[in-house]
Design a protein around this nucleic acid. Sequence first.
DNA 1: CGCCGACTTGACATTAATCAAATGTAGTGG
DNA 2: CCACTACATTTGATTAATGTCAAGTCGGCG
Lengths: 223, 223
Amino acid sequence: MGLADADLEKLDQIIGRRRKVRKDTLLYRMDDPFTNLYAIRLGHFKTYQITPGGEQQVTGFQMAGELLGMDAISTDRHHCDAMALEDSEVCEIPFLQLEELFSTIPTLLHHFHRMMSREITREQNVMLLLGNMRAEQRFAAFLVNLAARYAARGYSSTQFQLRMSREEIGNYLGLTIESISRLLSRLKRQGLIRVANREIELLQPERLRAIAAGTEPGDPGSF
Amino acid sequence: MGLADADLEKLDQIIGRRRKVRKDTLLYRMDDPFTNLYAIRLGHFKTYQITPGGEQQVTGFQMAGELLGMDAISTDRHHCDAMALEDSEVCEIPFLQLEELFSTIPTLLHHFHRMMSREITREQNVMLLLGNMRAEQRFAAFLVNLAARYAARGYSSTQFQLRMSREEIGNYLGLTIESISRLLSRLKRQGLIRVANREIELLQPERLRAIAAGTEPGDPGSF
DNA sequence: CGCCGACTTGACATTAATCAAATGTAGTGG
DNA sequence: CCACTACATTTGATTAATGTCAAGTCGGCG
């Protein structure tokens, strides 16, 4: 991220111990006091809020290289639960120390602002998805987004494992598990994807992008 | 916000000229280069993205005292349009200068982080709204949210003017204009609100909060 | 007064949810 | 290795919520 070696070292010094988080366990939970941000070293997480009615709403899926906990800065309490989708590992970053470091490393500060801002735009994209896309479009957008993130990490963008259940996908996309299952079946039938359990292959990423963009109509008939 | 007088003065120095933005005109538009944040002094705005398909998705309504433009930091380009809903006035805040100031006023930096984080949690709440609330619940949540924000500004929390059209509300909530109209009529019929054009009065804010929270079932019959 | 855009209302269509089974899959203990 | 259980997923039939289409009605403004 364009830091000088000396600065990197200072950053290293405040980055706390690594912490393993076992599958299905919480890294933090809503209302926990906020002290650390967490950089994901390894694995995948989901974040979700609990509604007043006791249901959950998944607000995001995070993978290695992404930062967890930025929503907690505003109130010094976490606003959602963060659960590991598989055995994972994070680095604790004590936020107070990080803020102190900012005054000596402006580049780091700037970079941090970009990450917060990026989270804001990410969420705006989800709002767009939930607010005006139809089921198939949402799901295609979801797949395309995952593909792009894996590509950015050097993994295959056409073949990967879904780390989350159908139910979690549905919850995230504002759909039911049955809808997700039907969408998978339909895209499979149309030859756009190959699916085996949670292993997925995008056979025609271009057309998936078109569906996500709303350019391709998609077969509404057999939902 | 807890700054010393001397610091406040420094902040004042970088806060640029005021700028009037006439109703229905853009403060900035998507892909404009990012140079300033904007503090709303007066008036109301909406922000929206344009979908690949050319439709718009309203991502928020902002009022005096709120900050516009934080989503642009990540890419140095604005990610949405910001349009004045009425004749309004903003202060330009040159972001580069603001970041310089942070190194000398840590309190200001901390406050800024809280504002960015607050925007993140705001959007998470919208995701929750779009992802698992029903139409009536969404609309009640919308009204309750406006009420709370007006209350925080010293205005009546039970009587205010909607600065946005039914269509804009619907777009924001992921509903059609007809649905919004029906919801208004229904809540009026049930004695929960009084409506005259864009003037609205919350007659039973407590029950509205209950509907928003999902505690109160709401009459599904006569949609 | 009359037009225009914003809003309301009604009838109908559609999407995705719900309900209900059936099927598959991963573990577990024998 | 296999039977057995628990859970996740798929599939089908039906329904409910909300969208769409089509008239109106209202209110402000020239």
